[in-house]
Design a protein around this nucleic acid. Sequence first.
DNA 1: TTGTATGCGTTATCAA
DNA 2: TTGATAACGCATACAA
Lengths: 333, 333
Amino acid sequence: MPTIKDVAKLSQTSVGTVSRYLNGYHLKAANQARIEKAIKELNFNINPIARGLKTNKTKTVGVLVPELSNTFSAHVIEGMEQVFDEHGYSLLVCNSRNNPNVESEKLRLLRDKLVDGIILMSVQDLGGHIREIQENGLPIVLIDRLITDLSCDGVVSDNVNGAYRAVEVIINRGHKRIGIIAGPQEIYTAKERLEGYLRALKDYNIPVDESLICEGHYTQAGGAQALDFLWERPEPPTAVFVCNNDMVVGAVKCISSKELTIGKDISLFGYDQLEFSQIVKPPLSLVIQPIEEIGRRAAEMLVRRLEGDFSGFPVVQRLKTEMVVTDSVQTVT
Amino acid sequence: MPTIKDVAKLSQTSVGTVSRYLNGYHLKAANQARIEKAIKELNFNINPIARGLKTNKTKTVGVLVPELSNTFSAHVIEGMEQVFDEHGYSLLVCNSRNNPNVESEKLRLLRDKLVDGIILMSVQDLGGHIREIQENGLPIVLIDRLITDLSCDGVVSDNVNGAYRAVEVIINRGHKRIGIIAGPQEIYTAKERLEGYLRALKDYNIPVDESLICEGHYTQAGGAQALDFLWERPEPPTAVFVCNNDMVVGAVKCISSKELTIGKDISLFGYDQLEFSQIVKPPLSLVIQPIEEIGRRAAEMLVRRLEGDFSGFPVVQRLKTEMVVTDSVQTVT
DNA sequence: TTGTATGCGTTATCAA
DNA sequence: TTGATAACGCATACAA
């Protein structure tokens, strides 16, 4: 691999001049031409490691999510990649495996690898390990989940409102016994969606029946178990709001195995766009998050910080959700 | 950020000794203790950039795929991340957006960022740009798709056999007019799966009817259009083999919109594990690739190369597919 | 506008 | 076993 030294020699200039050329300074046309020629001839490429050692910038950002293979992570990463790519940043992608300890470890790894900034979907509502990183001067943008005791930029979707409007639809279609398959209450989004549910019931004067509130893991199994549990109640709900995409899949599988018909035997309102939502009969009613947009916004925010614009810190963007309403929620009279 | 210089000073040793400690050399117990104490006290972390400048190793590998948000990419990355993590490698993830030019560009970017090796799911059957990288001494492992004119390690699944066995099942259930929704023939897997289809027909003496072979993009729209096309034939097929997960989704949607019943009006055999395959009625018959295993194997192979073991180059692993057979393929008499 | 020289934080070579 | 010092490839302060 040729270095600027080689370029300097071949172009009969000096390393300083070559370096200046590479950094966009203006120089005498003749020199510029000779340097350009030499660069081409040698097939020279700048060595970002060496550059990084000087500048303390790597043009790399860290992305840390709880799981790489789920749709949410994949789409949010796809979204941010577009923006980062435009701005010349590469993505160092890490997986915290839903484990707080791994999260802390990876966060340190990212700092040590000298990323310029970090996008984090955290698995816990504790900010100590994150604050430590912030104190190193690394900008961090949270996605999907905010952290109570942490002052940090973030991009999330409006879970309370999303859930509220879904439950509102269910109520307006005449249901009184409305179950919810909520996520683990340590998770920010799960807490918010449950809150939306509770607020809607309250606003419409429907008493809260604790036995219709079921907490499950954000997994297919969690959704299936929860639906099973709700359905086995002495007085099962006539409609169920399911708070997460994986849980929806599980719930639908469970309903299917019970030979029940959605929108007739039981009404269902799900969360997030699902591959199969239009294939199931009837198509599913859904709260839909702008997942890729969350990624793009988060990336844009981080880029702003990386460019030195710290205005308004901490900025939290709360993106609106869309809603699809279908016959999966029966109208009862 | 403290450096080894600070550690040396505080521990009253020299940078050389500290460096040796960090690299696992043995030193006098007393010095070791003092260094360890100093490291803790200063909260010292090694600077991998500086280290990389000396060693020309970054402990980072590049991953380049055509799309980040699809299930295949996501799962294959999840798989390889496990292995790389165990070996201390981080992942620099890039997106070629199904564009050969972007692929070449990103490949150069990865080289310039000095990754130690690359995992590549290529979007074209041309190896020039890849060979160029190999010549820089960077180990590359191809996944999912091999490249004809390129000598390179690779991990793929046995597409020919997977398709063959699926079509064999269809034939054994008595079908004679078997359609295939094949992918774009520039794509390695698409070509191989079509070949499996053709071989099965040949082995069972079923004449090939070109009008039942339909090429579509590896997308939902591609699958839907293709199914529509096949179904509108004067003599439509009684069974269709769909060669890719996205196309299966499209095909099922199309069938659904036509109010046809799978396994009765039309038999269907799909590819890859789908979230909804068990929800659809009847559940879908599928060829299932070991996607995460492909990722793991590829990572293991690359790690071997990175550790200097170049035995058997080029090694191509062809992983077996699984198969699920259901009533989505009708038995005709 | 350009060349020279220094330093970024490591590793590696050489003496001791 | 250790310390001093020269690289690694680049950016930059300073002098010219």
